[in-house]
Computed example of a mutant assay.
Amino acid sequence: MNVGFIGIGSMGSLLIDSFIGSGALKPSQITASNRTISKAKILAERHPGLLVAASNREAAFGSDIVFLCIKPLEFKKVIEELRGTLQPHQIIVSITSPVLLSQLEDWLPCKVAKIIPSITNYLFCGATLCMFGRRITDADKHLLNSMLSHISTPLAIEEQHTRIVSDLSSCGPAFMAFVLQKFIDAAVEETGIPRDEALIIASAMLSGTGQLLTEGGMTPETLQSRVAVPGGITAKALALLDRELDGVFNAVIRATHAKYNEDLEHVAVSLYGKEVNGS
């Protein structure tokens, strides 16, 4: 199996590193192109045998699966390049959430799918969220899920839920890291504990908490009840958090959805023009 990657920014390079590191793919099975070709050459030095393509068409030609790891407004240019090269049996996999499956199927003659990876895939854990176009067969789904299962737990979702599941799975690690950072900052400021020490302790705590919520079978509610004794220190702090954070994550979700809706509109205008959206 040959796999092409178009775009090797943060997430594109993470996927390549993870697929190779997990044994899902050998470097010789991968061809990569990038707007800045020097980045592709650096990646090839890190993974000897990986092929650097001089163009997007070259990366796609002969590949069974082609990952599009590009920004929303780059899509029209890239798919215009590819539409004359791609064959019906090939699978295009987009990792760009505001580009819809129906739009890809309008523009391309091949099979299409969409995934939402996560930075947690770098350590072969977390979820990869999967959506499949109408031309994808059960055999294609099996192929993609087999690849992705090396680096994650593949989960099929409905495209209409793209944004909220992305918030939870893909953006979530950054949100939780931000909360942990603020917790550590406060610990250092209030008590003088060395920051390195606080970071080690808090990071180990977060890792263990994640295991309790997955392998341990606990829910967030049961975990809190097991730790917090009524009238105790933890219970008092949880009551303060409940007051102070009331509505915060609702506002976070509204903000991500507002940006997503803007991106949806911009992509549609880019691909079809304003008149398609009634503007």
Rank of each mutant, 00 (worst) to 15 (best):
L271R: 04
G273T: 01
E265Q: 06
V269Y: 04
K274P: 08
D246G: 11
G247I: 11
Y272R: 02
V276Q: 14
D263L: 14
S270Q: 01
A255T: 11
A251I: 14
S270K: 00
Y260M: 06
D246N: 15
A255V: 07
Y260F: 14
L271S: 01
V267G: 02
L264D: 04
V248R: 12
G273Y: 02
A258F: 04
A258I: 03
V276E: 12
A251N: 14
A258P: 01
E265N: 06
E262W: 01
Y272T: 00
E265C: 05
G247D: 09
A251V: 14
L245Q: 12
I253P: 06
E262K: 04
Y272M: 02
V276K: 13
D246H: 15
E265G: 04
A258E: 05
Y260H: 11
L245S: 14
H257G: 13
V276M: 13
Y260I: 03
V267K: 00
L245K: 11
E265K: 06
F249M: 12
G247C: 10
Y272P: 02
V252M: 12
G247P: 02
L264P: 06
Y260L: 03
A251R: 15
E262S: 05
V267T: 03
E275S: 12
R254Y: 08
K274R: 15
L264E: 04
H257E: 09
L271P: 00
V276A: 15
K259R: 08
A258L: 05
T256P: 03
D246M: 11
V269M: 05
L271A: 02
